[in-house]
Structures are given as C-alpha cells and as structure tokens.
Amino acid sequence: MALKLDPRTKLFMIFIVSAVVMMSATTPLLWAVRITMTMIPIFLLIAEKHYAAALRFIVLYSAALLISFKFLSENSKGFLSAFLVGYCSIIVQFMPAVITAWYVVRTTKIGEFVSAMQKMHVPDGITISLAVVMRFFPTIKEEYSSIRDAMKMRGIMFGGGNVTDVVEYRMIPLLFSCVNIGDELSAAAVTRGLGGKVKRTSVQELKMGGADYMLILMFTAALVFFVVFKYMK
C-alpha cells in the first residue's frame, strides 16, 4: 500500500471538489484547474489498486469532455446533438464530485471514518447514521442483484407488465431484506458497545502524514486559484 490518507483529508477533498463543481468553468485556464482536480482522485484510485474503476472514470470523463468541447464550439441544433451535449455537460459538471465521493467511500474503512468524525467532534448520531449509509450502499447493490436473479428465475423481467409491478416486485423484497439486515446490524453494533455512555476508543490510530498536508495544500490552492481567476478578473 503506497498511500494511506487520513479520512479527514479525504473529507476535505470532497468539500473542495463539491465547492468547485458548483462554479462553472468558463475559460481554458479554469478548465485546466478543474481537470487537474479531477485527475487527483483518479491517481489516488490507481494508487489504491482500483484499476478498473479508475479506467472507467477516465474513459467516461474524457469522452464527455471531448464531445462537449467539440460541439461547444459549433452551434448544436436538433434534438440529438442538444441531447448529447446536455448529457455530456452534466457528466463533465458532476463527474469530479462523483469520482471523489466514490474514492472516499471505497477506500475508507468504517472504523477510520468513525474515529475521524469523533476527533472532529461531530455528534454521535450523525456519525453513526452516516457510517451506516456508507456501509449500506454496497449491501443494497448486492441484495438488489440477488433479487433480480430470483425474479429472472421466475420469469419476471423489466419491460414485461406495467411499471408499478416492476417497482413493486423489486422494491418490496429489497425493503424486507434491508429491514432484516438493519436489525442484525444494530444487534451486532450494540454488543460491541455502540451507544454506550463511556467515551469510545478506537483501534485505528489516525495521524496526518506528509501526503495529507500536501494534498490539503494542493486542494486549497486550487480552490483559491479558481475563485480568484473566476471572480477577480
């Protein structure tokens, strides 16, 4: 493992990227800043050996960038090109935030996350709920794909039947299993002392390293740079 970042650095990255995503880039210089900022989480993904995800993001992002730049210069008319440009610009706009969020969720252990939140004095309720949300997305995906397999076996597919049936047949079993998993999860968590009165300690020792400070510096600089060049000129 080459690079181990502190969860607080990761949260800071999300914060900055989300702020920059809100401001639209208009000049080539600003685009350069944005693209550089998008590349950092992709490199971090590669460093953490998530090659497939990194490749997927690069391909999607650069394709969207290319299409929207190529068509931006021309006057796009007609339904299809308007649709395409609209679609790509949405991807270009939100992709940086999505990539960063994906990277953070994928590479942060829940224990690390909770202890980082504790160090930042976030109320317990929010920490626990957020940790459950983070942990739960993969579970929902997994449950959903098993439900879909089960439905296929019984010959219930998308497209067949009306919309409400499709929603009902998938959502109800999903809710059932999620509620049950939730009960198990809380039983497991309570036996490990979650929600007790004492202050909890953590196995994970969090320390800010050189890489952390460097990244925080880089992202802050990028934000300042972006704001200055967008609004001061």
Binding site: G125, I128, A131, F136, F137, C178, I181, G182, A189, G195
Partner: peptide, 20 residues
C-alpha cells in the same frame, strides 16, 4: 433519547431513499 438502533435505522432508510 435516541439509541444506537435508531441511528442505524435512520442510516438504512436514508440510503434507500437516496437510491430511489
């Protein structure tokens, strides 16, 4: 007061709502 179990319930349903 809210217990740990309640927080977990909140987390689960927030995740579900967000998926929708």
């Amino acid at each position: 007061k809210l217990q740990a179990k309640d927080f977990i319930t909140i987390g689960i349903f927030t995740a579900l709502l967000f998926v929708v």
